[in-house]
Amino acid sequence: MKGMTLIVKKTTQLIAGMVFMYGIYIIVHGHLTPGGGFAGGVVIAGSFILLILAFGSDFLNLVKEESGSTLYENLAILVVLFLAVSGLLFGTRVFFLNWFPKGTVGQLVSAGMLPLYNIFVGIEVAASILTIFLALIIFKEEISE
């Protein structure tokens, strides 16, 4: 896949960072405002897809990126599982127990473990969707060669 023209590339360079930051904002404020791990993860994957579409495969080493995103995806789901299991160690010993101190409602650092779940589920969703997209692109390239 070839990249697009210079204007598209420069505009994408400007925009992709902002889209990425917006995704991180949605994830981190997931327990205060609309959003959360699923929404923010999809937005982050969208920013990477924007870069790949604009720059093409000459600029990025797609196979290497795909193995990296697969790794991140699996590590993130593992961390979510460990966080869920950690509820079995404290208090009433329930799976998915929210054993962190809750804090006051409305603060950024509050709600116990929910921000942690949000962050790792966000990484997992972003890496999954990016992996699917990269797999399709690599398959198309292999066929056309």
Partner: peptide
């Protein structure tokens, strides 16, 4: 909320089979 993201993954899996 979770079902929408799963829907994206399954649709792209269907697309992989189709291609």
């Amino acid at each position: 909320l979770t079902a929408i993201v799963i829907g994206l993954a399954t649709t792209s899996m269907l697309m992989a089979v189709i291609i």
